[in-house]
Simulated assay, not measured.
Amino acid sequence: MTFATRLLTSRPVWDRAGLTASTLCVAHCVATPFVAAVLPIIAAMEGATHAVLALAVLSFSLLAFVPGFRKHRRSPVLGLGSAGVALIWLPVVLPESMSSESLETIATVSGGIAMVVAHLVNLYFCRTCRVCAESAC
């Protein structure tokens, strides 16, 4: 098996990447109002930054949760991950007229926390699984 194949099929790598992206998403959402008050140019770039982080969260989630579900059949992880992705994407897809800063913050922080928990639980299932212990997860 080549390095690239191993990397693409290694769920723990994607769970760790998803943890990082989700944590960055939460940190970005919490810090942006404070930083934007000091540096107004940050406020102008906030929408694009959120979209990029949301895309990273979605990508890493698919790479971690779909193979994890196929192997472990733990639907709560898939459900929590899906809810987290939906909450993170809500401010990106919601029209500006229907959104507010507080709604965006609540949705993104809640979604980020849900994603962090889902990735941690997914990693736990991989570590405690007999099938994963016998072969690379």
Rank of each mutant, 00 (worst) to 15 (best):
T5H: 10
R6H: 12
R6W: 10
L7S: 10
L8P: 05
L8C: 07
T9V: 13
S10Q: 00
R11K: 14
P12W: 01
V13Q: 07
W14D: 01
D15H: 11
A17M: 03
G18I: 02
L19H: 04
T20S: 10
S22M: 08
S22K: 01
T23F: 12
L24V: 12
C25S: 02
C25T: 14
V26S: 02
A27S: 12
H28L: 05
C29T: 15
V30N: 02
T32V: 12
P33K: 05
F34P: 04
F34H: 05
A36T: 14
A37K: 12
A37R: 14
V38K: 03
I42M: 09
A43L: 04
M45D: 06
G47W: 10
A48V: 14
T49Y: 03
T49M: 07
A51F: 13
L53S: 03
L53R: 03
A54L: 08
L55Q: 11
L58C: 15
F60E: 04
S61V: 10
L62A: 09
L62C: 13
L62H: 06
L63A: 11
L63G: 06
A64S: 13
F65R: 00
V66P: 00
R70H: 09
R70C: 12
R70K: 06
R70W: 10
H72A: 02
H72E: 04
R74E: 08
R74Y: 13
S75K: 01
P76Y: 05
P76F: 07
V77I: 04
V77F: 00
L78I: 06
G79I: 06
L80T: 13
L80N: 06
G81D: 04
A83D: 06
G84H: 00
A86I: 09
L87D: 02
L87I: 14
L87K: 02
I88N: 00
L90C: 07
L90N: 06
P91Q: 04
V92T: 11
V92I: 14
V93P: 00
V93W: 03
P95C: 07
P95Y: 08
P95L: 13
P95D: 15
E96V: 14
S97D: 09
S97F: 08
S97C: 02
M98G: 07
M98Y: 13
S100G: 11
S100I: 05
E101M: 12
S102C: 08
S102W: 08
L103C: 11
E104A: 15
T105F: 09
T105L: 15
T105M: 15
I106A: 14
A107T: 14
V109L: 05
V109A: 04
S110Q: 06
S110V: 13
S110M: 12
G111P: 05
G111S: 07
G112E: 00
M115P: 05
M115S: 11
V116I: 15
V117S: 00
V117Y: 00
V117G: 00
A118Q: 03
H119A: 08
H119L: 09
V121D: 12
V121C: 09
V121A: 07
V121F: 06
N122R: 03
F125E: 05
F125H: 08
C126M: 06
R127G: 03
R127K: 14
R127E: 05
T128F: 08
C129W: 12
R130Y: 08
V131Q: 10
V131I: 15
A133P: 02
E134C: 09
E134A: 12
E134H: 07
S135G: 04
S135T: 13
S135P: 00
S135C: 03
C137E: 05
C137Y: 07
